[in-house]
Write a protein that binds this DNA or RNA. Structure first.
Length: 631
DNA sequence: TCACACGGAGCTATAGAGGA
DNA sequence: TCCTCTATAGCTCCGTGTGA
């Protein structure tokens, strides 16, 4: 294989251009390096270890892997099956959330297997999927004893899963903070260390505008990165950096990638998990509304808290109202900032689908992992694992071979629209798998009661805002949030108009369907940001929530498996969009190879406009994420 | 023999239900 | 609306069993 060193680049676009203009004699080396690395990080015949922070994007990515490993939707028994694949999930410890418990709940929900506690309760085995307590990535020094204990625990878990599965090699998918991985490589056993065949690092870099760490990756020091390179060189294994913006996964909201996110999140996740995201979103929405009210009246701090306490039903809100009843939330600067476009845009998203990520403003980093792992058979069709040398101190990158580091970038045939469509198609395929076993969401009166309280308090707060005291245009924009509360995905799912549809709350009957909620994502016709498949909601394209998925609108009595459903969609493409489903053969996306079946991925989609949100909504790609400083 | 894993017991915090 | 009670989850401790 010919070795080469390309020119240095200071951003990803320049890097891509230098790759495209690479001399012919080096192209095969470059392609071979990429192919070999992608084969390793997607190898289904090795044990994949996933470090996860248990946020919603991470849980959904894990769901996509579990769906493949356990053949959800088409397996014989809803529970442990002999043919299930193995994997190990290392739950990042955190003071603010019970990540271990959250991941255990997800795996139990999806697999249907009874969890058996081991290692003094720090590891739980669900058939062949094991969840182990990991390390708190906010602790980067000290606590040596606890660190060694965690490494030993992970060693034991890995050894047992390898023994149970008969697998020999490991691919370690790590998060943004390298500390624990480096410690593990350093002090684990030599047999486990030599079992490593590849490493991926997710969300550590943000290469789009300059070669810089992401917000989360700033915890890594230059020596950390150099150590990682040294270790990988010694072990002769590739390290692949995965980050969402580099893969053109630029949108901050899961609603961009998951059709009817506010509805189907309740199928993807058990109620106990979805709740925490719902609570956070409701808390943020109320805070937003009362900040505006406070700014409008020139009242701040505990004055505003009193207003919240008076107008938000305490019985419905006592379990989630935290930020909105804290006087620190209503400092003058914070209240005035509520009128900014990006803040209102965030509120629009929450009002439509009130299931906030636990880490705000970080985008969906875990979705960068959707292109690696055992569920990804077609990664090589869309991505390149570019072999690179990264000069972290000089913030430069260049193509090189042989290389230890790689960055996963879309091939030149891919653009924002195609990538977005493909992820939508993939998530729709995963949803179908889960939905086959779990059915449609069953929403209770508790959710409805909480939402009614949110809507009532919001409407009181906004209704009393004096427009003359607000910046020009803010009142109109805020009106879109109000519209979403009642007519967005969530409001619609809880309270469908009685004369147009059937409530989703209790309905599991496959013979009924709801109409399309208001799906405008912006401030109006000229500034819409769209999500999913529809660029605008004109009121003329009445669509139905795919409450019954592929079966909705199909001949009565015809129950489809996911595969059959997609086949049907491909045969009758003109019908599927009206059912709110993605249609094979339509739109830009090619079928996503998933679970041994080629799903017709992608919708007849108009993707969210990068510039569709005034001077840029944070979720619309118009707000570039902070690039951070150089190392 | 020793280290480690397992499983049960008990404590604490929290959520939810029900009654005053 | 507030208070109390109950159930549950999470966690730690400790006795017992097992394998190197």
């Amino acid at each position: 294989m010919a070795s080469f060193n390309g020119p240095w680049s200071s951003d990803l676009d320049t890097f891509k251009k230098s790759v495209q203009s690479m001399p012919d004699q080096y192209k095969s080396s470059f392609a071979n390096a990429s192919k070999s690395t992608l084969e390793k990080v997607c190898d289904p015949k090795v044990l994949h270890i996933w470090e996860s922070n248990s946020d919603a994007d991470g849980l959904l990515q894990l769901t996509s892997v579990i769906a493949k490993l356990c053949d959800l939707g088409v397996r014989k028994h809803k529970g442990a099956n002999d043919g299930d694949g193995s994997m190990l999930i290392i739950a990042e410890e955190s003071r603010s959330r019970n990540g271990f418990g959250r991941i255990c709940q997800l795996v139990e929900y999806l697999t249907g297997a009874d969890g058996k506690r081991h290692l003094e309760g720090t590891a739980v085995v669900f058939s062949k999927i094991v969840v182990a307590r990991g390390w708190d990535n906010s602790i980067l020094s000290g606590q040596e004893e606890a660190l060694v204990k965690t490494v030993k625990r992970v060693n034991t878990a890995v050894e047992r899963v390898l023994k149970m599965s008969g697998l020999k090699k490991i691919v370690w998918h790590h998060g943004a903070v390298l500390h624990f991985l480096l410690q593990w490589i350093n002090i684990t056993t030599s047999s486990l260390r030599s079992a490593l065949s590849a490493i991926t690092i997710t969300g550590s870099l943000n290469l789009t505008e300059c070669i810089a760490p992401s917000a989360a990756g700033r915890a890594n020091t230059l020596p950390d990165l150099e150590r990682l390179e040294q270790y990988a060189k010694k072990l002769d294994i590739p390290v692949v950096f995965l980050d969402a913006p580099s893969q053109l996964l630029n949108f901050e909201y899961l609603g961009t990638y998951i059709y009817y996110y506010g509805y189907y999140i309740n199928t993807f996740l058990p109620n106990s998990l979805a709740r925490s995201h719902l609570h956070k979103a409701q808390d943020e929405l109320i805070t937003f509304a009362f900040r505006l009210r406070g700014a409008s009246e020139g009242r701040y701090g505990s004055d505003v808290v009193k207003m919240v306490q008076k107008h938000l039903d305490a019985n419905k809100a006592r379990h989630w109202a935290k930020m909105c009843v804290s006087k620190e939330s209503y400092e003058k600067s914070k209240c005035r900032a509520a009128g900014k476009d990006e803040t209102i845009h965030h509120a629009v998203q929450l009002a439509d689908s009130p299931f906030a990520l636990l880490a705000s403003g970080a985008g969906v980093p875990a979705f960068a992992r959707l292109s690696v792992g055992p569920a990804c058979a077609s990664t090589q069709d869309y991505y390149t694992a570019a072999p690179v040398k990264i000069a972290f101190a000089k913030v430069r990158i260049r193509p090189t071979s042989p290389a230890t580091f790689h960055v996963l970038i879309p091939q030149s045939s891919q653009d924002l629209e195609r990538v977005t469509n493909r992820i939508q198609g993939l998530m729709m395929a995963v949803l179908e798998r889960v939905r086959q076993e779990k059915g449609n969401p069953v929403l209770s009166d508790t959710e409805k009661g909480m939402w009614d309280a949110v809507v009532k308090a919001y409407e009181w707060a906004i209704g009393g805002c004096d427009e003359s005291n607000m910046p020009k245009g803010v009142a109109k924009k805020v009106g879109f949030v109000k519209g979403k509360l009642r007519e967005g995905t969530w409001g619609f799912a809880l309270n469908p108009p009685k004369n147009r549809g059937v409530a989703a709350t209790t309905n599991t009957n496959a013979g009924t369907a709801m109409l399309e909620p208001n799906r405008t994502y912006g401030f109006g016709q000229s500034t819409q940001q769209t999500r999913g498949s529809h660029s605008t909601y004109t009121g003329t394209q009445q669509q139905q929530i795919p409450q019954h998925g592929c079966g909705a609108g199909l001949p009565q009595g015809l129950l489809l498996s996911p595969v059959q459903g997609i086949s049907y969609a491909q045969q009758v493409p003109s019908q599927m969009p009206t059912q709110g489903m993605y249609a094979g053969g339509q739109g830009q996306a090619r079928g996503q190879q998933y679970g041994n079946h080629c799903f017709g991925g992608g919708q007849a989609a108009v993707i969210p406009s990068r510039h569709g949100f005034g001077h840029g909504g944070s979720g619309g790609g118009g707000h570039p994420q902070s690039m951070g400083g150089p190392w």
